[in-house]
Design a binder for these strands. Structure first.
Length: 273
DNA sequence: CTGAGCACCTGAGGGC
DNA sequence: TGCCCTCAGGTGCTCA
């Protein structure tokens, strides 16, 4: 579920808690999530010390003093949290990390669309999941003119382009819908019909929506909660996502819903053209 | 190469 | 209660 804002919120909360921690023991209660968990992970990781907690796209990257990177993707329902070791495992607690100081981190993922790999840090850029990743939206590399040029070349609907990780990473269904609303652009508009002004608005609003969401811990709908079990509060700021049939907060027109490439799109027919 | 659709998996919620 | 259907913060793969 986690889009960039949720993974970044997790990273921000996790970093101060596990930086410098040493892994004592790893229990794999399943050997696969969406893909097999790296064989040997449970054997290799113990005694390694976590030296950095980073993020690329929607992947969380834990680097260790043995130059390994533990790559974690939360998929749709993945969660990472500290638990009292005495509390019995949930049936979806798939990976358990015991730290040397006695704390226990658990990875829970009911749908198992998540991923977990352990690899040599230097092999990450050429890894098949990372090789084709596009630009990070919260960097200077993502700017209006760049987006405009990408749009000019694409025939796909603008929403699909914004959610295409080969172009731009981190923007999922919630933030794509929200930034399109704030920019007054319908999700169905062909990317090559985007104006320079639209590209400017979209670029600014994507940055705005993501950073504002990170500031309040992400968006909690259904089961998502942060490491400390507190829900992300960005749900309170959603204009269109999940609001089919409600009145637009700007113009009172009824919010409409449609399906694009298998995903729900929400928009205001008056505000978005 | 590009774009659309499917597959992977479980659980929640609505209608009957 | 139960069954059956639809839907869900993602993304790699296959096919046209």
């Amino acid at each position: 579920m986690p889009e960039l804002a949720e993974v970044e919120s997790l990273r921000l909360k996790l970093e101060p808690q596990i930086l410098g921690a040493t892994v004592k023991k790893v229990v794999l209660r399943r050997k696969d999530l969406r893909y097999p968990i790296t064989p040997g992970l449970a054997k290799k990781l113990p005694t390694q010390k976590i030296e950095s907690v980073k993020r690329r796209s929607k992947y969380l990257l834990l680097n260790t003093n043995a130059d390994q990177t533990l790559v974690i993707h939360l998929g749709m329902t993945g969660r990472f949290f500290f638990a009292d070791p005495k509390v019995p495992y949930d049936k979806h607690d798939h990976v358990i990390f015991d730290l040397k100081d006695g704390r226990q981190l658990r990875f829970r993922d009911p749908r198992r669309f998540g991923m977990m790999f352990l690899m040599d840090a230097k092999t990450l850029p050429e890894n098949k999941f990372f090789k084709h990743l596009g630009v990070e939206p919260l960097t200077e590399a993502f700017h209006a003119e760049w987006l405009y040029q990408k749009c000019k070349k694409a025939k796909t609907p603008i929403k699909s382009l914004l959610m295409n990780a080969k172009v731009l990473v981190g923007v999922g269904n919630i933030y794509a819908n929200e930034s399109l609303f704030l920019s007054g652009v319908r999700p169905t508009r062909q990317a090559n019909r985007i104006t320079r002004q639209n590209a400017e608005d979209l670029c600014a609003n994507i940055k705005k929506v993501l950073s504002e969401s990170i500031a309040v811990g992400g968006t909690s709908i259904r089961d998502y909660v942060g490491v400390d079990e507190t829900p992300g509060l960005y749900k309170l700021q959603l204009y269109v996502y999940g609001r089919t049939g409600e009145a637009c907060q700007v113009c009172q027109e009824t919010i409409k819903h449609l399906t694009q490439t298998g995903r729900s799109s929400f928009y205001c027919p008056r505000c978005q053209r």
